[in-house]
Amino acid sequence: QKLKVEDALSYLDQVKIRFANDPGIYNKFLDIMKEFKSQSIDTPGVINRVSQLFHGHPDLVLGFNAFLPPGYRIEVPK
């Protein structure tokens, strides 16, 4: 199903709230997205960076996976 702008805003809020005590992580996520937007990094590059950044936060990883195109996803350890 197609995600909307509201879903993106909601996800960004979720990340911001999670790292309220460590805003550098939220800012790094914004930086990764900006690099993708400027095409400095591609989809696999984004996946690589985000999987490291959100290591230990499987719910954030699953939420991020929803934005990835078919055939791409970050594996979450069970």
Partner: peptide
């Protein structure tokens, strides 16, 4: 582009960042 929803998220993130996070 092959990842329209990721582009959408990136656009929203860029706007959010430009507004101060």
């Amino acid at each position: 582009l092959p990842a329209p929803q990721l582009v959408m998220l990136a656009n929203v993130a860029a706007v959010t960042a430009s507004e101060g996070g």
